[in-house]
C-alpha cells in the first residue's frame, strides 16, 4: 500500500485515516478535478528551494570558484582567463616574510583585543548584575558603542587620538603638544590604539552574553554557599565562573573570529600604518585583491589560508565548549 504523506496521520494508511474521518474510498482516491495533490515533503521542498538556490548562487558557488581561483594566476580586471599554477600562490604566501608579519600582527591584535574585551566585558557584567536605580539606563548606554558602524567609530576615534586637538592626550595628562604621544603615527602605539577602540566598542557584547549567563544562575546555589560560609572568591570561582563559562566561551569565540577578520577599524584608523605596523591579514588581503593590484588568484589563496586558521581556532573553542557541557 502506498502511503500519501499529506493524508498520513501517525504512519497509518490513508484508507484507515479516511475511514475514521467518514470519507468513502472514492473520495479518498480521486483528487478534485484539475488539481494535483502535493505531498508535505514536496511543499517543504518548494519552500526551501528558493533559499537553496540563493545559497548556491551567493555562497556555495563563489566559495568553490574562489577555491579554484586560488590555484590560478588570475586578475579579475584582466580579459585573460585564469591560468592554473597549482600550489604556487600558497607557497608564495607561506614563504613570504611579509605575510608572516601580517599574521603575527593579526595574532597579537586578536590576543590583546579579545583578552581585554573578556576582562572588561565580564567585569561590567558583574557590576551591572545587581539591580539598582538607573541600572537599566546604564546597561543600555553601555551597549551603545556596539550598535555603531565600525567606520564611524574609527572616524570619531581618529579625532579623539589627534595630538593637536584630540581629547585623549589631555585626559591622560599630556598637555604639552611637543611631548604628547602620536597614537596613530607611532609604530609602538598604533596597534594599541586599535585595540583600545575595539575594546571600547565590543566589550559591551561580551558583557551582554555574560549578563545572560549570570541571570540564569539559580539563587539557591549562592544561598547554599552562604550557609556553608563560602567566601566571595570561592563563590565566584566555583559557582559564578563555571556557570557563565559556556556563554563566555561563545562570546570569546565570536570576538576571536571577528578579530581575525579585522579590517574596517584598521582601515579607518591607520590604513595599516605606520609602514606595516598595523597591517592585519585582512588589510593586506584587501590591498592584494583591489587597490590597483587586483591579484585575484593570490588574494583568493590568502583568503583560504585565513579561513583555515579561523576554522582551526573555532574548533578549539567548540571542543572546549563541548568539554564544559559534558563535564
Amino acid at each position: 500500500m502506498r502511503y500519501v504523506n499529506s493524508s498520513n496521520v501517525k504512519g497509518r494508511p490513508v484508507s484507515q485515516v479516511n475511514a475514521q474521518r467518514g470519507l468513502s474510498s472514492r473520495q479518498e482516491t480521486v483528487p478534485p478535478a484539475g488539481r494535483r495533490q502535493l505531498s508535505d515533503m514536496r511543499i517543504v521542498q518548494l519552500f526551501i528551494l528558493p533559499t537553496i538556490i540563493l545559497l548556491i548562487l551567493m555562497n556555495i558557488f563563489p566559495l568553490i570558484y574562489s577555491l579554484f581561483l586560488s590555484f590560478t594566476n588570475y586578475s579579475v580586471i584582466s580579459s585573460d582567463p585564469p591560468v592554473w599554477v597549482g600550489l604556487e600562490n600558497y607557497t608564495h604566501i607561506l614563504s613570504d616574510p611579509d605575510f608572516w608579519h601580517n599574521f603575527a600582527t593579526t595574532g597579537t591584535y586578536a590576543l590583546l583585543s579579545v583578552s581585554l574585551q573578556t576582562i572588561v566585558g565580564f567585569a561590567l557584567a558583574m557590576l551591572l548584575r545587581s539591580k539598582f536605580t538607573g541600572s537599566g539606563i546604564i546597561t543600555t548606554l553601555v551597549l551603545v558603542p556596539m550598535m555603531l558602524s565600525p567606520i564611524v567609530v574609527a572616524v570619531f576615534w581618529r579625532l579623539i587620538f589627534n595630538p593637536s586637538f584630540g581629547i585623549l592626550n589631555p585626559i591622560l595628562g599630556f598637555t604639552d603638544i611637543n611631548t604628547s604621544p602620536e597614537w596613530l603615527g607611532d609604530p609602538a602605539l598604533a596597534l594599541w590604539a586599535i585595540v583600545i577602540v575595539d575594546v571600547w566598542q565590543w566589550s559591551p557584547f561580551v558583557m551582554l552574553l555574560c549578563l545572560a549567563g549570570l541571570s540564569a544562575i539559580p539563587e539557591y546555589l549562592y544561598e547554599a554557599a552562604a550557609i556553608d560560609r563560602a567566601s566571595a572568591w570561592f563563590q565566584f570561582r566555583r559557582i559564578t565562573l563555571p556557570q557563565v563559562m559556556p556563554l563566555l566561551l561563545i562570546a570569546v569565540l565570536f570576538r576571536t573570529i571577528e578579530a581575525f577578520k579585522q579590517f574596517d577599524l584598521v582601515q579607518g584608523l591607520t590604513f595599516g600604518g605606520p609602514g606595516d605596523a598595523t597591517e592585519t591579514v585582512s588589510v593586506e588581503l584587501y590591498r592584494l585583491a583591489f587597490q590597483g593590484q587586483f591579484e585575484t588568484g593570490l588574494s583568493s589563496a590568502l583568503a583560504y589560508i585565513v579561513l583555515v586558521v579561523i576554522i582551526a581556532i573555532s574548533n578549539l573553542y567548540i571542543r572546549a565548549l563541548n568539554r564544559l557541557r559534558e563535564g
Partner: peptide, 16 residues
C-alpha cells in the same frame, strides 16, 4: 606603488 608606499611611510611617519 604598494612597495614604495609601505617603506616611505614606515620611515617618514613611523621613523623606522
Amino acid at each position: 606603488l604598494a612597495v614604495v608606499q609601505q617603506y616611505l611611510h614606515a620611515y617618514v611617519v613611523g621613523g623606522e
